[in-house]
Every structure is written in structure tokens, then in C-alpha cells.
Amino acid sequence: MKDTFDENAERKAWMGLLAKAPEGRVAALLDATMARPVFTWLRAPEIGSTMIRGRAGGTGAPFNLGEITVTRCAVTLSSGEVGHAYIKGRRKADAEAAALVDALMQGNDAKTVRAAILEPLETEETLAKTTRAAKAAATKVEFFTMARGED
């Protein structure tokens, strides 16, 4: 599936990164980087749900697993860029910050925003994941064959 060029791949990556950031983190990084840009709501923050689906046997036909709370919003910057956010949880402030960063990434400040917001988020996400994976790795079982029953 990843062999075709996806023109949206970059934007998908940063929107995913923003959605997965811990509560308050995107806002904190954004406010440390710049004054918030002037914007209007294209869609004010709204809380709803998304039905999560799984597949029977992991790979078969889809089924409905249960819902998750989701917050979404969309902003239009005074410079015209439109930013969207769809993030899990009931987090209006986080959705606003994520949508603003999404919009900024499409404008002239993209480079600054990437270095000051996306890159730290990426580093933090990787660190959190490797820390957890390292704890899991420490619980990996090493089997030693003591005696075989065949002889």
C-alpha cells in the first residue's frame, strides 16, 4: 500500500503526530514558539465519537469494536490557510492548537514550526515508545531446554 506516492503523506504524518501528543503539549510548544496567529473558526471545536473497527481473526471481515470520543475543529488563518484537527478524547484546547499548527505548516512559517513543534514531538513520541518497549523487552522469556524426554 505504501508503494504509490501519496501527496498527502507529509500532512498525514504531522496530523497524526499532533493527535497523539500528550494533553497540553502542542499548545505549550506552540505558545513557546510564537504568538498565536489570527484566525477564524471554520468549525468551532466539537466533541463526538468515532466507531473503532477491528477485523475478525485480525485480518478478516471488519466488525464494530466500540466508540472513542473525538474532538474536531477547523480554523482559517488570516493569511488564508485552513487547518484541521481530529484528535481522540474530549480536548477542545488541544484540537485548537493542533488545527493551528496544521494551518501554520501550510504557510510561510512551516520551517520554524517543524523545528520548534513537530521535531520535539517526534523525539518525545519515539522516547516514550522505546522506554515502554525496553520494559517489555526485559520481560521476554529465554527458554533453556533442561532435558528432553526422547532419550
Binding site: 473503532i52 473497527r53 485480518t59 469494536l65
Partner: peptide, 14 residues
């Protein structure tokens, strides 16, 4: 009470 925004793609447990 929640409006439904849609459904996810089936999660990849692999």
C-alpha cells in the same frame, strides 16, 4: 449523547 463523526479504518493489530 455524542454525535457520530464516522468509523475508523479497521485497526491493524499485527
Amino acid at each position: 449523547t455524542l454525535p457520530r463523526f464516522g468509523a475508523s479504518r479497521p485497526v491493524d493489530t499485527g
